[in-house]
Amino acid sequence: MNIFKAIGGTYNEVRLNPNVGTWSFLLHRLSGILLAFYLFMHLIVIATSPGNAGAFDSRLAAVQTRLFHLLEIGLVGVIFFHMLNGLRILVADFFYLTRQHQKLLWIVVIIFIIIMAYATAVMLPKVFHREVTEVAQIVGGLR
């Protein structure tokens, strides 16, 4: 298996069949690869030194910056897209709704938008959030 051939083949598939099914297939695969990669990074961060509070906190602090909080919104988006599209595949498989897959995709899109609106509303403040102590330091520095 040549990776360039694989990418070329996928590109041709999208070019020759640029329909909704092909795009959802491609996005499902890409989001799946991203999530598998994230899973292992996540395990390394969480499961290293689980019995040492100081080491655990310093490791977590490194991934709780504003940038990471912003990326977390993207992560939740990738998770819910993959989840909802996966459910669409499952429903089409088990309930013989393959011919309705385009309609099912629009239902996925609507539910995805609702979930992401909620997720953004809840998670975006964290991106701009400043700890009380941090604000106090800034105010103290201005005086």
């Binding site: 989840m83 996966g86 998670m123 964290k126």
Partner: peptide, 24 residues
């Protein structure tokens, strides 16, 4: 995973604990 992720994402990202996740 649909059920598990709803629980996990809700606890970690959608609740107040998410403000600062630490050992405690």
């Amino acid at each position: 995973l649909v059920v598990g992720l709803f629980i996990h994402v809700n606890v970690i990202h959608f609740t107040t604990e998410a403000r600062l996740i630490d050992f405690s």
